[in-house]
């Protein structure tokens, strides 16, 4: 207990003690506080300068990076084009090689099919015409539908095939003739269709870029013609029956 009493005693006595600081104590402190205030006032300008310099550096770096990316992008495009061109030529070359192989292998078969085509042409020219007309009509209708859909929905444009282009040309020519002469005969339409059909066939069979006739396409075309012959016969029969009925009705009054 003795030390605690002693400690309380000295605590009380020391608490009451006051030591007067030296006369220049406040002046020293005041001077230090003034210096601190000056530093604090300078700080914002310093920070502003630093911020401005950082912004400047960032701007320059961003500009530099943008230029770099543009420079990097350009050769990439060139490279890909070259690769595509190379690929295309390789593919064409490969196709030609394959075609030549196939050509050699199908020489005999090709001769036989060409004979068949010639015989078909000789045997049924009317049937063929009718078939061509019907096919073209269907194509025109489908094209009109697709045009209408494209006009209303404004879908992204697809690459126009040669056939579609020809159909459009034929339709345009018919429209033109209608506007000019107002009377279009079936013969005119048939002539236009036949011409278009010939061009389509030629385009299918003959590759303009390579200058090679596609034997496979030729075979497929002949097969399609054989398939369509029945339909064309039916069409022809219906047409002829309609004509006979028409003449009968016309002759009835006579």
């Amino acid at each position: 207990m003795a030390p605690i009493n002693f400690e309380n005693n000295i605590k009380n006595k020391l608490d009451e003690r006051r030591l007067k600081p030296s006369t220049d104590a406040w002046d020293k402190l005041s001077e230090r506080l003034d210096n601190q205030d000056k530093k604090n006032n300078k700080k914002p300008y310093w920070w502003l300068g630093l911020a401005a310099s950082i912004v400047g550096v960032l701007f320059v770096v961003s500009q530099f990076l943008n230029n770099e990316t543009q420079v990097n992008e350009a050769p990439k495009i060139v490279d890909t084009q070259e690769i595509i061109q190379e690929k295309e030529t390789n593919i064409i070359a490969a196709e030609n090689e394959i075609f030549e192989d196939v050509k050699d292998a199908n020489v005999k078969v090709g001769k036989e099919t060409t004979k068949k085509i010639e015989t078909l042409k000789l045997v049924s020219p009317k049937e063929k015409k009718a078939f061509v007309a019907s096919v073209n009509e269907r194509k025109i209708i489908s094209k009109e539908k697709t045009n209408a859909i494209a006009a209303t929905a404004e879908l992204p444009k697809k690459p126009v095939t040669f056939e579609e282009q020809k159909i459009q040309d034929v339709v345009a020519q018919v429209q033109y003739l209608k506007n000019e002469n107002k009377v279009i005969t079936d013969a005119d339409i048939e002539a236009l269709l036949e011409e278009a059909q010939k061009e389509i066939m030629l385009n299918r069979l003959y590759n303009g870029t390579t200058g090679v006739v596609d034997a496979i396409a030729l075979l497929q075309d002949v097969e399609a013609e054989l398939d369509q012959s029945f339909r064309s016969k039916v069409f022809e029969a219906l047409k002829s029956s309609y004509k006979s009925v028409k003449t009968a009705v016309a002759q009835r009054n006579d």
């Binding site: 006051r18 030591l19 406040w26 506080l33």
Partner: peptide, 17 residues
């Protein structure tokens, strides 16, 4: 600064002790 000076005068003797 004046207010700081007054506060200093009030507390400095005790704090020096």
């Amino acid at each position: 600064r004046e207010a700081q000076h007054v506060l200093f005068e009030m507390h400095a003797p005790k704090m020096l002790s």
